[in-house]
Design a protein around this nucleic acid. Structure first.
Lengths: 341, 341
DNA sequence: TATTTTACCGCAATCGTTTGCATAGTTTTT
DNA sequence: AAAAACTATGCAAACGATTGCGGTAAAATA
């Protein structure tokens, strides 16, 4: 039993006033007499009037919706970010539209089109691993839609972004590993076309040189999934000697490495220390529990959304892009605590 | 540098034809000559025309958007479901709008209003733990918007739903525990106002009576979070003897229980076996790895969305609601394998 | 040749809301 | 008392796409 939705006209008809007056009254325009405003409010409540967001969006050429493009929702970190985004958006009366790129560049481009077609007020994006060209993101700019990057930014695009202090955090992790007495430290890196991957590697290299450890090319390979890490450890075991520490680009990678190490009968952290990155929910309960860095995903979502909302609400164009960095916290757990072994 | 978006009128002007013709040509209406259609297609491509979804939505009184109301995105299970939803929606040209209820009833009601105001074509919802009344969901019906429940349905509402075979799965888990030699099996239940919580408890009870084990009231308490489970184990330890098995309503609860057991120096599964529910990503890598049931979240999302889409595209009202159940798979891991101890 | 059919296309209204401008009535100012 | 200013409201045109209803010209038929 479908009921025709209540519109502004219905209210107008009831009160024998014009739709314009109702519209104005609804948003408490002082041009409208207090009396009329109250009447309108009453009738609106009685009829259970709900403004048609779509119609408003059409008229204003913008809807109270913000679009989010995210590689994969199933990552704990990303779901945390979304949660933060959702919270701020909700409180500000915005709704969020979420698209997954599934780490594919073309799908990401498609997501952009979709979001633009929906007249979103702004877009939050964390670029996919695959993405190399950024023309689809510049498209957003051309349409005058604010965009802010979170976590993974497109290198070279001067836009707002809130990112982690990947370099520093990676450096802290590596330093910690060195302090534990490790000297042959391998890095399973993320894709180097992503700032996130590049920066973490840089931090790793920095900590190495800081400690006077000569870096060796074969210490660093791109391996950013559970399986790749597993295989890489197996390969290392055959090709060269195992290192005494592995610093992984993310937690899942670390777990993959740990699985391989366990199978090889290697003690963690006794023979090989391991560290991850991201503080996935499983890092705390893995065995042994994983040293990692907490990226504060929720906060990141909150900050990014605030930034975007500020951009949306500011008239002036051309304000310089701002970069916010949220500091990661090194969380030392059992995979790197030599003391206890 | 904001560029005015290109509209159907722009194309019309270029070709000196009317907007109506362009509109029709764009959707390959045979009423329009092939030649014109090709011209339109060309110009549209050249101008990079993107149809304004909002305008279309207004005219059609429906947008190609489906709304999702979910308790919390950060649960691995739910993020899997969303992933499934997103996939199907994407392939069918729909976009998804996600709202979190954060397990709050009023927020859920608010989400419904938001989604309806956005003229969504349909709604997928998994009701919050807190939700007792369902008037806000009936509101959806009144607006003629299709609704399908996934995972958690509102008891008593005759709507499409895709749910787990909670009862059977819970029964299987309990049976398995019994087979392992356990006889004093405690159940940490979920909220009993949710079908999901009720059914799992029923399955547990069924398996018990099936095996001729007399149920005792104090064996079952509502504890559905990590912390509550932790505390409950501690309480049980003081008040009565620890059981020889704990079947938890979900994985996180199981982990909370395990944490407490570890602290009490109780061997798992030697002295107390543990089982969870949901196959969270951490169940596989916890120590010991957790026996649980895989709920196939992704599939669930896929099925629910297909069901919704079918409903959206079917003219006829009044087709009876269908219930799909996706069968959970018992995954036996170390927390319940007495054989190996 | 007159008439009907067919193929293509345009007019104009519509979806629900917003907003610049006009207008009627009332109050204040000169 | 006339002019000016203000108050409260209405008119009508947008926003961009869709669609029922017609209309024109060419082709087919009588």
């Amino acid at each position: 039993m479908k009921t025709a939705p209540v519109t502004i006209k219905d209210i107008a008809r009831q009160l024998k006033i014009s739709p314009s007056t109702v519209s104005r009254a609804l948003k408490n325009n002082p041009e409208i007499s207090l009396e009329t405003r109250q009447h309108v409010a009453e009738v609106a409540a009685r009829l259970d009037y709900r403004p048609n967001i779509v119609a408003r969006g059409l008229k204003q050429r913008q809807s109270a919706t913000i679009g989010v493009i995210i590689p994969e929702i199933v990552h704990y970190f990303f779901s945390q970010v979304i949660s933060g985004i959702e919270e701020v958006a909700y409180n500000e009366g915005y709704t969020v539209m979420i698209c997954q790129s599934n780490e594919k560049s073309d799908r990401e481009a498609n997501n952009v089109r979709t979001l633009l077609a929906h007249q979103v007020a702004g877009i939050l994006v964390s670029v996919s691993k695959e993405t190399a060209g950024f023309s689809h993101l510049e498209e957003v700019d051309k349409n005058g839609v604010p965009l802010v990057f979170f976590d993974r930014a497109a290198p070279g695009m001067a836009k707002d972004q809130v990112i982690n202090d990947n370099r520093e955090s990676a450096c802290r992790v590596t330093r910690h590993l060195i302090q534990q007495g490790c000297s042959r430290i391998v890095h399973f890196a993320g894709p180097q076309n992503l700032s996130i991957g590049k920066e973490r590697k840089e931090g790793y290299l920095h900590a190495l040189s800081e400690a006077g450890i000569a870096f060796r090319e074969e210490w660093c390979t791109v391996a950013d999934t559970f399986d790749k890490a597993y295989q890489e450890v197996m390969r290392l075991h055959q090709v060269l000697n195992l290192p005494d520490a592995i610093f992984c680009n993310n937690d899942l990678t670390a777990l993959g490495a740990m699985k391989a190490l366990r199978q090889l009968g290697v003690a963690i952290p006794g023979e090989v220390a391991v560290a991850g990155f991201s503080n996935g929910i499983f890092s705390e309960i893995s065995d042994p529990s994983l040293t990692t860095v907490d990226q504060h995903g929720y906060d990141m979502g909150v900050q990014a959304t605030r930034l975007l909302l500020k951009r949306i609400n500011s008239q002036k164009e051309g304000e310089p892009p701002v970069t916010m960095v949220v500091r990661g916290d090194l969380i030392i757990r059992d995979t790197s605590s030599r003391g206890s072994v």
